[in-house]
Design a protein around this nucleic acid. Structure first.
Length: 266
DNA sequence: GGACCTGGAGGTCTCGATGC
DNA sequence: GCATCGAGACCTCCAGGTCC
């Protein structure tokens, strides 16, 4: 069977793309050395890799013909829109993250709840939840770029360990990217898993969205790693612009949290 | 000695499987 | 259809080991 072509995928709905790719993926032979848990990821990536240069090329041409989203004002608006939607979703969720004093007392879920330390309970719950959810925000923002696709949003498929696939200069081949928030997001015990997930792809990249967080906790002899501007430049996005909008977003969420605290109890 | 790397522990959420 | 449970994912913090 011929590999799947971009022209077959482009006109389809997300679910139809998913269905077609699954059909092709089932025919891909997986090398015996690949971990059983990554067989499906290998198959999907293998099928996608052949179609992506043309698929992303089509996205880029579309973007140019409509006035590129990478142009500064449009880029700023697109990032701001994603950030605003994220903030609205999170602010709506915030009240549900805070349990009543009665709940905390009768069934404490952690040490802070057991002690009735309400401020620690709330800050712990909200900041952890925010950190987790921001991972999705980076994926959404990368996907603004016509040089990137999201396996989930563009094809309805999840590739284990891969958050985005980008086409960036160099080889002209799609690069499978795992994105974390900071250089030290991964712990030692998690790094081997990330290495396994990335190593099954011929062109792979470990990216930290922001150059904060001290030193790298991910290392590999054969998987390149980038952080901050170096990464965002690969897809034509402006790191300084991104930092500006992210700062606004986090401060807005903080303001909403303060306002929530000041509301009288129902 | 300090920077870096590795491993372990822990909190929280989502999602799919399972049972009622 | 709904509730519960467990696995997987994402994140943080800390301690100990290694290397320059």
């Amino acid at each position: 069977m011929q590999p799947v072509q971009a022209v077959q995928l482009i006109p389809l709905s997300i679910s139809a793309r998913s269905h077609l790719l699954e059909k092709y993926a089932g025919l891909v032979n997986v090398p015996s050395e690949i971990n059983a848990e990554l067989h499906r990821a290998y198959q999907i990536a293998n099928v996608l890799a052949s179609a992506l240069p043309e698929f992303i090329g089509h996205q880029i041409q579309d973007d140019i013909s409509q006035g590129s989203v990478l142009e500064s004002d449009r880029q700023s608006l697109a990032i701001a829109t994603e950030c605003k939607q994220f903030a609205n979703r999170f602010i709506a969720l915030m009240p549900t993250l805070v349990r009543s004093p009665d709940e905390m007392e009768t069934s404490p879920r952690n040490l802070y709840e057991m002690c009735g330390a309400a401020i620690f309970v709330e800050s712990n719950s909200i900041s952890r939840n925010l950190s987790t959810k921001m991972g999705e925000l980076w994926e959404r923002i990368v996907n603004i770029s016509p040089y990137a696709v999201s396996p989930e949003r563009d094809f309805g498929l999840k590739i284990t360990g891969i958050d985005s696939i980008i086409l960036s200069g160099g080889t002209g081949e799609p690069i499978f990217v795992q994105i974390k928030t900071q250089r030290n997001t991964l712990t030692g015990s998690q790094a081997p898993r990330s290495r396994c997930e990335l190593e099954i792809h011929q062109h792979r990249l470990f990216a930290a969205a922001f150059c904060t967080g001290g030193s790298w906790t991910f290392s590999s002899t054969n998987i390149p790693r980038v952080c901050g501007a170096e990464f965002w430049n690969m897809v034509g996005l402006d790191y300084e612009l991104l930092k500006f909008h992210v700062k606004q977003t986090i401060l807005n969420i903080q303001s909403a949290y303060i306002a929530l605290q000041q509301e009288p109890p129902i």
